[in-house]
Design a protein around this nucleic acid. Sequence first.
DNA 1: GGCCACTTTGGAAGCGCTTTCGTCAAAAAT
DNA 2: ATTTTTGACGAAAGCGCTTCCAAAGTGGCC
Lengths: 337, 337
Amino acid sequence: MAKRKPTIHEVAHLAQVGIGTVSRVLNNHPSVRPETRERVLAAMARLGYSPNPHARRVAGGRSYTVSLVLPVVSTEFYNRLLEGIEAVLTEERYELALFPILSPIRLQRYLESRSLAYQTDGILVSSQGLASLLPDQRFPTERPVVLVDAYSPRYDSAYMDNRLGGRLAAEHLAQFPGSLFAIQLREELDEVLKNTVGQERIEGFREGLRKARRAFPGKHVFLSRFSLEGGRLALQYFMRLAKPPYNIFAGADLLALGVLEEAERQGLEVGREVRVLGFDGHPWTAEKGLSTLAQPIEEMGAEAARLLMSRIRGFKGPPRARRFEPTLVVRPSTQGP
Amino acid sequence: MAKRKPTIHEVAHLAQVGIGTVSRVLNNHPSVRPETRERVLAAMARLGYSPNPHARRVAGGRSYTVSLVLPVVSTEFYNRLLEGIEAVLTEERYELALFPILSPIRLQRYLESRSLAYQTDGILVSSQGLASLLPDQRFPTERPVVLVDAYSPRYDSAYMDNRLGGRLAAEHLAQFPGSLFAIQLREELDEVLKNTVGQERIEGFREGLRKARRAFPGKHVFLSRFSLEGGRLALQYFMRLAKPPYNIFAGADLLALGVLEEAERQGLEVGREVRVLGFDGHPWTAEKGLSTLAQPIEEMGAEAARLLMSRIRGFKGPPRARRFEPTLVVRPSTQGP
DNA sequence: GGCCACTTTGGAAGCGCTTTCGTCAAAAAT
DNA sequence: ATTTTTGACGAAAGCGCTTCCAAAGTGGCC
């Protein structure tokens, strides 16, 4: 009963043009007169037309689809990353297929799957952990690969300078009296999928403190999973080590939030006795008054998508690297109430 | 340079048959003589042929793809669920597209997307949280929907009887001396995406204890996120409430593991002073000696896939419900070392 | 005014399959 | 032995698009 979806022919008929012209409008081909394009677009709107992607694919010999391989970890992070990627792809009339890698086995299976051969014109691989699992030689199929939130000299990469973030954290916190502490993020996933961001951030922090000539003993680092509880346990641990004030660099916003909660429970005044700085720049940090290192995640995603599209279009140059910088956002949690 | 992939024509030529016959072999059509089928299969193997899915789709007018909408939570759970689903789909020569819903917004967007209209012949929606977000009237497109790990009278459902699991836990733990405790799982995600499994399990537990005439005050329930730390904090909390032995029903294996770790730190003997029962039946519970309520997750996934395939094939009956039961697996954590 | 070089357009060919239709031979029924 | 039914299969007709090619239109320039 459901009436068939309109095809390119109906649109062509209604707009009084040939099917070739309709197709050209669909693909943003330059040689269509503006007024013709208008007519065609109007006809498409009238009919509620949208192209059948499968037909496009078989005719065009391409999939018009890009896939994203991602570990399943921080949802908020990926939410934002996807925003950026999709913004670009939509413009390009491309679709996105997600491949959440829940285990190394799945990555293997994905790489070998027929999906790759047909479904995808290019592949985005996110996270250093997954990137390091990529085969050394060359990718199984000839599809271009771009790394996002990861770096390798062998592939185009769009990555975050976590080390710089650590240094900025150090510069900021070093100005306050009291001892310095850090919570290092340890990824929860499988060994093989583990990320290196936690380590990088701490290394940068250490580097910055050295430059500022501030003491930072090894035991002042608390290793924690990505969880609220981790932040609470960290503050408890720090309190056994030293007296206030505490200046804490948390490897992630969620950890910093845990610190805030625990500080309240312990009756410590945030911004004076406990200063804490997060990492990520999630929207909710604003309302919580949490200082943080904001990451331009969407921009990073968008740039990765652009790099991939240029490869799909045939770009052949050597691997390109795009570095993104976190920026310090100061809020009450590190400047008093 | 990459030589073109072989097509159905080459296979037909090599096997000395018509292209129609090759297609029939591909689709398990009954009217092909076994020896002919052999010849065709041999030819496909020789050429390394695999059909172009896009061409199938445009010619067949179907997508040969099913999509799974899932919240991103417990990785291990979904890992196993996917095993079951894919086992069935592979047999059916179907593919699976994943739609991890990272936020309610994304669900909305997905339901409205063109993807649904073309990419998918049917939809699996997992988790009660997502299921309850489905539109009340009817699904946007006419595609069949099957719920997995969720129940609704309006859709075919394959679901786990979590309440039964709770009752089994109660029966088992009630036989031991000492007080009874429970850790209730609270999902971490957005309010809207939250699951009800934690609540169901505890309700069943409560029910079972009532039947066994065992006391179970409200404060004996510790509410926790899905994390190792949650289990540790829970045991600390219970220790403030009562003396050993503790008989603990943890709403998830990971929480139970946290209890085990904390018990060791506190010097409590597992199996005598602390008895703990998990939920899920993950592979690693065996090596940890953890008693658990094993869920037939793969079977549930497979059954959901079957329900969906039958709908895709045109089955029109009223919604069907398939209930799956967790089974008690007793290990040292609840029977002494 | 006439010629050339673009620009714009219509339509046919083809992408690799599924499916329908008709044929032919073998099996079953008369 | 003849007719009818059935089963196996080849060939052709699409599926809805992209793209190529040739034709028509447009303007600039001498």
